[in-house]
Simulated assay, not measured.
Amino acid sequence: MDNLLDKASSVRQGEELDITRIDQFLKSQLPSLQGEPRLEQFAGGASNLTYLLAYADRDLILRRPPFGHKAKSAHDMLREAHIMTALKPVYPYVPSVLASSHADEVMDVDFYVMERIKGIIPRQNLPKSLNLSPEQTRQLCINVIDKMIELHQVDYRAAGLSHLGKGEGYVKRQIDGWTDRYEKARTPDVGSFADVMAWLKAKMPSQDVATCLIHNDFRFDNVVLNPDNPLEVIGVLDWEMATLGDPLMDLGNTLAYWVQADDDGVMQMMRRQPTHLAGMLTRQEVIDYYGQKTGYQVDNFDFYSIYGLFRLAVIAQQIYYRFYHGQSKNAQFAMFGQMVNYLEQRCLGFIANSKL
């Protein structure tokens, strides 16, 4: 099954690390480590960067912020490590955090190191040797959504996690926050999103549907599948933006990435997960399934869908800002400005057809 495992590759130019200093630090925290580690980097990394530290007897994962300009409130590695440590006892799919470091202790930024959960990460396409039938694909899809629902149903008060959020008013904080982030990261070659932001402010619900633990970036390429049973989810990754908030906002974020088989060509080019496969639920089917399982009212999901697309555009623009200003040399970011403009038009199309 090794051919199905998610694999790292060479470190991208400009994103190298001082492996000697990292090794010294880790051995001071984990004395059982043996030998010199091999440093590689995982695909993705449009936001935080993920590296493999392959020791003779175990594999570790290092997470650090991107190089270049960063939004003030983004890429808080120590917060992510803290959240993961707090969640692990009540949500076992979280990897164990093994060490963390403040900026200037080892490198010029905060970072943390966690265990590696070896498995399949469903990125843009499933491994070629993994031949799932439409029925199996549908079950995999449901199993992934169920892990989000399971997170939303954790009793965060009983688990002592009330400190992770700011209480009621989550929806308004998100609309105000993402609006501010977009305005600060806007470059001259992208649209203003003025009509989209105005619509979201006018149509936001007067109160949150509920307050629960939310992931805020729950996607197929943030889950790990059991290589011996690829329909089973054994890990959930990337907890940087996890907090207490409205569960329908979390679902809206997830569906912004959900490219289905009948989407237009531009959406297909943006696809980063295998949601186009025969058997996968459509976005509307996901909404309906989620509503049935949770009991939340999802009859008119327009606000949450448009919010998810706007938020995705802001994230893409923050990344593009770094590329535009020469702070990142990752060539895959060159087209992000065009993606942002496309997402503005997609939002406006959804708004034109909305009944809200």
Rank of each mutant, 00 (worst) to 15 (best):
residue 17 L to M: 12
residue 27 K to C: 07
residue 48 N to R: 03
residue 29 Q to T: 05
residue 40 E to G: 04
residue 35 G to Y: 10
residue 36 E to T: 14
residue 57 D to V: 12
residue 41 Q to E: 13
residue 15 E to S: 06
residue 20 T to V: 13
residue 36 E to C: 04
residue 56 A to L: 14
residue 17 L to Q: 07
residue 44 G to W: 03
residue 32 S to L: 11
residue 40 E to D: 14
residue 43 A to L: 13
residue 29 Q to V: 05
residue 35 G to T: 11
residue 44 G to Y: 02
residue 38 R to C: 03
residue 16 E to A: 13
residue 37 P to I: 01
residue 53 L to M: 05
residue 48 N to F: 02
residue 35 G to D: 06
residue 58 R to T: 15
residue 15 E to P: 04
residue 20 T to S: 10
residue 59 D to F: 09
residue 21 R to M: 03
residue 12 R to C: 03
residue 24 Q to N: 13
residue 31 P to T: 12
residue 49 L to C: 03
residue 15 E to H: 07
residue 19 I to H: 01
residue 39 L to M: 11
residue 51 Y to K: 03
residue 33 L to P: 08
residue 25 F to M: 05
residue 27 K to T: 06
residue 46 A to P: 03
residue 20 T to M: 02
residue 15 E to L: 08
residue 31 P to K: 05
residue 42 F to Y: 11
residue 21 R to C: 01
residue 40 E to K: 12
residue 48 N to G: 09
residue 49 L to H: 00
residue 54 A to H: 07
residue 33 L to I: 10
residue 46 A to D: 02
residue 24 Q to L: 09
residue 12 R to G: 02
residue 46 A to H: 06
residue 31 P to Q: 09
residue 33 L to C: 11
residue 59 D to C: 10
residue 28 S to H: 12
residue 59 D to R: 14
residue 39 L to R: 09
residue 23 D to S: 07
residue 19 I to M: 05
residue 15 E to A: 01
residue 43 A to Y: 11
residue 51 Y to E: 00
residue 15 E to G: 02
residue 25 F to Q: 04
residue 33 L to M: 13
residue 42 F to W: 05
residue 24 Q to T: 14
residue 58 R to L: 14
residue 28 S to E: 15
residue 46 A to E: 05
residue 28 S to K: 14
residue 51 Y to L: 04
residue 31 P to F: 06
residue 58 R to V: 14
residue 22 I to C: 04
residue 40 E to F: 03
residue 45 G to Q: 01
residue 57 D to P: 09
residue 24 Q to R: 13
residue 13 Q to T: 12
residue 19 I to A: 05
residue 33 L to H: 10
residue 42 F to E: 06
residue 36 E to N: 12
residue 57 D to Q: 15
residue 36 E to R: 10
residue 25 F to D: 01
residue 27 K to F: 07
residue 32 S to C: 12
residue 47 S to V: 08
residue 34 Q to I: 14
residue 45 G to S: 02
residue 12 R to T: 03
residue 22 I to G: 01
residue 32 S to Q: 15
residue 59 D to H: 14
residue 43 A to I: 10
residue 53 L to Q: 04
residue 41 Q to Y: 05
residue 44 G to N: 06
residue 30 L to G: 08
residue 24 Q to E: 13
residue 17 L to C: 09
residue 53 L to H: 02
residue 56 A to Q: 15
residue 38 R to H: 09
residue 35 G to H: 12
residue 12 R to D: 06
residue 46 A to F: 06
residue 35 G to K: 12
residue 27 K to D: 06
residue 31 P to G: 11
residue 58 R to C: 13
residue 38 R to S: 09
residue 31 P to M: 11
residue 48 N to V: 05
residue 55 Y to K: 09
residue 44 G to L: 08
residue 43 A to P: 10
residue 16 E to D: 15
residue 56 A to W: 05
residue 32 S to W: 06
residue 54 A to R: 08
residue 37 P to D: 05
residue 37 P to Q: 02
residue 27 K to V: 06
residue 21 R to A: 09
residue 49 L to E: 00
residue 49 L to A: 01
residue 17 L to F: 07
residue 26 L to Q: 04
residue 40 E to Q: 14
residue 36 E to L: 07
residue 36 E to D: 15
residue 32 S to H: 13
residue 31 P to V: 13
